[in-house]
């Protein structure tokens, strides 16, 4: 069993992103005279930044526990999925650069009871989580879309092999 948390550096960077974005968009709404349409647009964008700040705080509070039996998130809105119950897995990759460099991954796991766990690659030990999830998906015969298959291959993870067998 292993316990993982999100990297401090990435959390600080996200707090900064959310804080700067919120300040830049909320400040003019409150203090600067603006046209009505712009006011609505800026207010909506500032809400998105506020949501991101909340999400970052939730990530900071979350710990991910990976064991041979399953995966569990500890903290607010904690959930668990036993590996034999894993019914869906999706691995996406995002990057804001044109050459798709310096991006990050987004792993979504779904259990039979509707439980859904979302993990970003800034989690310490993301590789371990990915290997366990891919092995479970392989064992359970989970159908993966082409994007997930290609991203797993690019990440060097094979399906159907238990983490310890690799």
């Amino acid at each position: 069993m292993s316990l993982h948390a999100y990297q401090k550096n990435s959390l600080i960077a996200d707090y900064l992103r959310g804080g700067i974005g919120f300040a830049v968009t909320a400040f003019p709404v409150v203090f600067a005279p603006m046209m009505g349409t712009f006011q609505i647009i800026f207010a909506l964008i500032s809400l998105v930044f506020a949501g991101f700040l909340l999400k970052t705080w939730l990530r900071a509070q979350t710990r991910v526990e990976v064991a041979d039996e399953g995966i569990r998130t500890l903290g607010p809105f904690g959930k668990s999925i036993a590996w034999p119950d894993l019914t869906a897995m999706e691995l996406r990759y995002y990057s804001t650069q044109k050459d798709k460099a310096k991006g990050w991954m987004h792993l979504v796991l779904k259990g039979g009871d509707g439980a859904k766990i979302t993990i970003e690659s800034t989690l310490d030990g993301f590789d371990t989580v990915l290997e366990h999830a891919a092995a479970a998906a392989g064992r359970n015969g989970v159908a993966l879309n082409q994007t997930t298959t290609e991203n797993l291959a690019a990440a060097g993870v094979s399906m159907g092999l238990a983490a310890g067998d690799r």
């Binding site: 995002y94 990057s95 798709k100 991006g103 690659s121 993301f126 994007t147 290609e150 991203n151």
Partner: peptide, 20 residues
């Protein structure tokens, strides 16, 4: 266009230097 592309095709480009 970037948002739609990210939704439609969230794949790694090999050699793109994914930061895991």
């Amino acid at each position: 266009s970037d948002l739609l592309l990210a939704l439609l095709d969230p794949r790694i480009r090999l050699g793109g230097g994914a930061n895991r």
